[in-house]
Write a protein that binds this DNA or RNA. Structure first.
Lengths: 125, 125
DNA sequence: TTCCGAGTGATACTTGACTATCAAAACGGA
DNA sequence: TCCGTTTTGATAGTCAAGTATCACTCGGAA
């Protein structure tokens, strides 16, 4: 039987409240403000469960650490700032993606990633 | 002064001749047909040099091993087969990618990755 | 309140991709 | 051909992300 714990609550709330994907370390930092002493193993254990349950998505982008975010969000893609290395959500999508497929190939899902400078890094460059 | 060696020649020719990106192990396998006993360290050393010189691109996709391919190819994107885990080039691109950018963000480059079943895996499923 | 299985935190371990080390072999100009 | 320099192959090491282990603590039904 699964217990309800302060740690799990805190981790889920941090992810659910964030407007952007977070790294495991960032999740730990934020959740530790509620549950001090929170261990990284607990963060990874909980993330694994949440991913298995489909509540959380594990996001891997070339050039960035793995990030995690709530799956309850609308379809979107990512922007990776090459200066500050932060990952940002970009709402919206493009039409015509299946046109890229060669004959006989079948699309299940797609990813679009834009690399560049985020608003903050462009401004204060 | 840089020597010209059979190993480097073989590695470059394997990459240049391939229509698809290759993993370091695949490059070793193919190049070893010309230079037997070719070591994996030599493959990685050579790949590093070729990437630094801009001759080769290092391709990281979520869910796949790192791949390498010649940079002398036309702009294109990738397809990752979730069954056989092979990476395929898809020629062409989409218009309107910069429209996804939030205000103040600046695009340097982009990636599009489609996940699904390749022609071979669709046919023989 | 008790009590036992689930959960936690610290930390050692694993895994995969890649790098460092070093003795031996290969290059290639003289 | 000689010979100093570069490169190679084997292998040990590194690094980061994540997992396993285990003693201790917590959750919550009875």
């Amino acid at each position: 039987m699964a217990y309800k714990t302060r740690q799990r609550d805190a981790i889920w709330e941090v992810i659910d409240a964030s407007a952007q994907p977070l790294t495991a370390q960032a999740i730990r930092q934020r959740a530790a403000q509620r549950v001090k002493g929170l261990g990284i193993a607990t963060v990874y254990r909980t993330l694994k469960q949440l991913v298995e349950e489909g509540q959380v998505k594990h996001i891997e982008l070339a050039g960035a650490q793995p990030h995690y975010e709530s799956s309850a969000r609308h379809h979107h893609h990512f922007f990776l700032c090459e200066k500050c290395k932060h990952v940002f959500d970009m709402m919206g999508c493009l039409r015509g993606i299946p046109n890229l497929l060669p004959k006989g190939y079948h699309m299940r899902r797609h990813e679009i990633v834009i690399y560049g400078d985020c608003a903050g890094c462009s401004t204060f460059a």
